[in-house]
Amino acid sequence: MRRFRLRKLVNVTMTVVCGLAVVVALVPLVSLLWLVIKKGVAGLSPEFFTQLPTPMGVPGGGVGNAIVGTLMIVAIACAIGLPVGIGAGVYLAEKGDGRLGRTVRFTSEVLAGVPSIVIGIVAWGLVVLPMKRFSALAGGVALSLIMIPTVARASEELIRLVPRSLREGALALGVPEWKTSLRVVLRTALGGIATAVLLSVARVMGETAPLLFTSLNNQYWNLAPDQPTASLTVEIYDYAISPFRDWHQKAWTAALVLLLLVGLLNLGARVLSRNRLGGAS
């Protein structure tokens, strides 16, 4: 009887300990979100979204150029990374059962684990070194290399979810395999792939390390892809490690803007996937 009571006690204790783990995990999340919102809102103004940064000590100013820069770099990354990533995903799903397919699949898994700073060095060597200057293009190349493996794996999984019967339905109509693959199978998987793409875009939008020495930073508006370009993340970093109080404030506000952007993308992904599931039931 005493043994039994002891066992029950251990059971309760371990349940509480594991439950505490949930609480411990939530503390930093709540703290971080709360502080970013609280401190970030303090510096929020319409100008913050539309104006250039001001020099130290000059009040006002914003991160308009960094927002535009981030969007431009991410757009370049998508332009390079999505075709390759989705293409590789279609390959893996449609023709990837052989040895080459297994090799490609394993490679994409390993690539997904390569630290982003390492990717930054590669993009530097590939773009910055030959062009002899930092550029949005270099940053975009770096982010595209990060996107490719994740997009490829996600696309493969989503295409494999398309039932065989749809493929056969199209083939039975006398549609060639390639058109069946593109216009029936891929089209059916497209909603899911769009969700995966949004999540992947959200992820690379938050990358800083691979941009530090590829797109660098820029105090001015820039739309030329071959020029150094500001980005929100690098801007946050520069502001945060500066010794100035008003720049720290800007770091928090820029962080809030970044979280809003990333959150919006995640929300979009969720809505998209919910619609898809709702439609299918």
């Binding site: 390959y91 990837g96 490609v104 490679t107 060597g125 395999e177 390639w178």
Partner: peptide, 28 residues
């Protein structure tokens, strides 16, 4: 013909992914 073209296009996308890995290692 269409199917054959498509198949080789897909294989080259797979090859591209391998090339990305190769480029990363070689350029580093």
């Amino acid at each position: 013909l269409g199917d054959r073209t498509y198949a080789s296009a897909l294989v080259s996308f797979g090859g591209l992914l391998l090339a990305v890995a190769g480029v990363i290692v070689v350029s580093l």
